[in-house]
Design a protein around this nucleic acid. Sequence first.
DNA 1: AATGAATGAGGCTTCATTCAT
DNA 2: TATGAATGAAGCCTCATTCAT
Lengths: 189, 189, 189, 189
Amino acid sequence: MKTLNKRDNIMKSALALFAERGFDATTVPMIATEANVGAGTIYRYFENKEVLVNTLFQNYVNMFTKTIEDGFPFDQTIRKQFHHIFKSMILFTNQNEHAIYFIKKHSAGHFLNDQSQTDFTQLLNFFRTFFNTGKQKSVIRNLPSEALIAILYGAFIELQNLVRAGELDVDQDLLLGIEESLWDSVRQQ
Amino acid sequence: MKTLNKRDNIMKSALALFAERGFDATTVPMIATEANVGAGTIYRYFENKEVLVNTLFQNYVNMFTKTIEDGFPFDQTIRKQFHHIFKSMILFTNQNEHAIYFIKKHSAGHFLNDQSQTDFTQLLNFFRTFFNTGKQKSVIRNLPSEALIAILYGAFIELQNLVRAGELDVDQDLLLGIEESLWDSVRQQ
Amino acid sequence: MKTLNKRDNIMKSALALFAERGFDATTVPMIATEANVGAGTIYRYFENKEVLVNTLFQNYVNMFTKTIEDGFPFDQTIRKQFHHIFKSMILFTNQNEHAIYFIKKHSAGHFLNDQSQTDFTQLLNFFRTFFNTGKQKSVIRNLPSEALIAILYGAFIELQNLVRAGELDVDQDLLLGIEESLWDSVRQQ
Amino acid sequence: MKTLNKRDNIMKSALALFAERGFDATTVPMIATEANVGAGTIYRYFENKEVLVNTLFQNYVNMFTKTIEDGFPFDQTIRKQFHHIFKSMILFTNQNEHAIYFIKKHSAGHFLNDQSQTDFTQLLNFFRTFFNTGKQKSVIRNLPSEALIAILYGAFIELQNLVRAGELDVDQDLLLGIEESLWDSVRQQ
DNA sequence: AATGAATGAGGCTTCATTCAT
DNA sequence: TATGAATGAAGCCTCATTCAT
């Protein structure tokens, strides 16, 4: 934490608190205390609390999108692509504690601005395209892509929530089992 | 709405607002306006805002539990039991708009009292027992029951969220397809 | 309490509660409950809470004044007159539980109207006249009458407060002792 | 008032308003206005209104106790000790406008915590001990110490109330006269 | 006449935001 | 640039008062 600059420190602290308590139950002084800065300092880096949450949201949603897009094997099988997505989701959650839960908890927030919503849609669009392609190739189940996204995303988030709460220990076998389960829920049988 | 008494009216309005905005972002005057009562009237029926949210939570969690337990075919196949559960979840969401999303959004709330948490655990326990039984019979996938619950519950909630947002129209075919998808995610293959 | 009409019942209950908790800490519903009437009923007999407290105040202040004036031995010695006053104060407090304490607690209240203040002044004037006469006859100490009133009244009230709190049991001997003490505090030595 | 810091300013304003109107009839915004601070500022220094009134109460009760105990002539006559007490009471009221009346008005308040009551009892205990000693030496009247306290305290407070209201101007002669009156009320004759 | 459910003004308190240091 | 004391708008809640029954 010593190597972070003040802005990153604030974002890191805000992320953890928003994920834990939610936007409305997190006060600015709480964030300041957690970040070891004065409350006023936060306003040097973020115009107000809403700007802070939107900045965080866009930051992590875009990072999530990039993680999935990065090295995506467009020329391989749908199953391999699915594996890449799953692996990327795991990677993102491992590298960014709290981030997935923060995104989930706030993705319908009353304080999100247009940009945040656009960025979130872009993330979903990646999944949408993936499922559309898979359905064309008759590898993915013939369900609306919205529904497939909901199933994959909803299940994944809920699983991460368990991990976060310490109610589920993840090892390689479990990951494989979960990947298989989620794949089975979306693939054409 | 005309046939509801004031208490039910308040609960109905609070349910919708809590589901939409969350507990912390919903003000008591908002609920009062939505319910067409004075702000003070709410306090004739509920000691305070926390009591209101806990009453709502317990009410709907228990109703959900009862809906699933009601007519549960203990002596039939796991698949038939799964069908009952799925049908019950659909039934509950159809009969209680907002309720599932309200439960989801608040099931880790900082304002939930012990009774609310106990009631929620009881709901999860029903699922847990079901999955345990299914795994013993080698019909359900060999994953921790927590994980199986998360997958089924997470996916289902996310789907309902879509329906609620009007982004998914449900017809009989779609329901069948979703049930199949969810079943495939938990069954032993 | 059964033989009282509703209005008297309300006054009796209000007196006890005002004496115990004070005007501001006593709610109208409290008075209603104590009087076994509906809250709305109070407003049939008293325009509002302030009118109620002023009615009570004037009622008991005037009753106090009358009790002292009644049978006052104008043609006897100052000491005998003092005895009459003391006896009357005891009589009044015995016949009207709470009343003295209610008067004391509220005699500088922000809610008292002109009539209440006039009535209270009239009570004090009786004492003033008594002390003035006594000073003319060189029987009473040469102190401002205001001060003499304060000494007699303040000490008496505080003593009643003790009795009311059950910290002092009154018998004939104690009364004689107190009367002697108070007389010594005002008489010319 | 310029030389006071904010906390003292708030206490000073609260003291005056509580003495004048009582705890229940004094609003926090009133105190804020009187102290020339924002309403929220009061909560930086006092957890809530009850903590404020208890802090004030303990502060002034203990100051009163200390003023009386300070330099108390244990080895001199009861009359000299009485003089010390009287002088101390005058000194305290002169140095702390409103304080005596504030103490009087709130010493049976429903909002007083245990510490406040303990502190007040300690003040009364000083008087109790004084009167007990005096009775043993047959210098003080043979009345319950509770009653003697009530007489001295009640009369004194009521006198101060007059001074406070501007209805009594105090000069050296008056003070001597009052002291003599109060002494005569408690001494063995 | 009596009731008590309903109301909403106003009190206590929190907290996002500002600004003097 | 950084701070945190100060502010006051707004939220929760109480209770004097009204009014339909």
